[in-house]
């Protein structure tokens, strides 16, 4: 998403979205043509349904695209301020999910909670870390011990013997 000074206008996003949907439809039609979309020896072939659905999707997004191209509005998609707010929530979440591959869910979750409390809530470090650890422990007890649901773990849990 490119950012113009005061925010993101709706029109380019609208066009990009319609194009992506059309591409999705095209991809579906392409793949369905590969596996066949006629009448096979065991009924309608696997590709029949996605093929026509893909065609309809391309048609519908074509119509949306035409509308977006023809109608020149100056409506905003979101202001820079709004996008910044969204990013402040979404980016730490993404990072925390990425970290889960390495350190497991518990540490990553505790980190996410602590980050939110300190950076967005203005809590003290002590309070934030204490709540983060408490949350991780509660999740562990409820899921792993009570309901036997195994969640991703990392080196820390290995160290503790799980």
């Amino acid at each position: 998403m490119s950012e113009v000074p005061r925010g993101l206008r709706a029109r380019p996003v609208e066009i990009a979205t319609a194009l992506s949907f059309a591409a999705l439809g095209g991809v579906a039609m392409f793949d369905s043509a590969r596996i066949g979309f006629g009448w096979g020896f065991d009924g309608p072939q696997s590709g029949t349904f996605p093929y026509w659905v893909g065609a309809l999707l391309m048609l519908a997004s074509g119509a949306v695209l035409a509308g977006a191209v023809l109608r020149r509005t100056r409506a905003m998609f979101a202001t820079n301020e709004q996008l910044a707010s969204v990013a402040r929530v979404f980016i730490p979440t993404t990072l925390s999910v990425a970290a889960m591959h390495l350190v497991g869910l518990y540490v990553a979750s505790a980190g996410l909670l602590a980050w939110f409390m300190i950076r967005l809530g203005g809590y003290s470090w002590l309070a934030a870390i204490a709540s983060a650890v408490a949350t991780a422990v509660i999740i562990f007890v409820v899921f792993e011990l009570w309901f036997f649901v195994s969640l991703p773990k990392g080196p820390l849990e290995d160290l503790l013997g799980y």
Partner: peptide, 16 residues
């Protein structure tokens, strides 16, 4: 999870 499980599997003998 897949990579984790494999990692755990590899670590299991060590741990034992």
């Amino acid at each position: 999870m897949t990579p984790r499980r494999t990692l755990l599997g590899a670590a299991a003998p060590l741990f034992a």
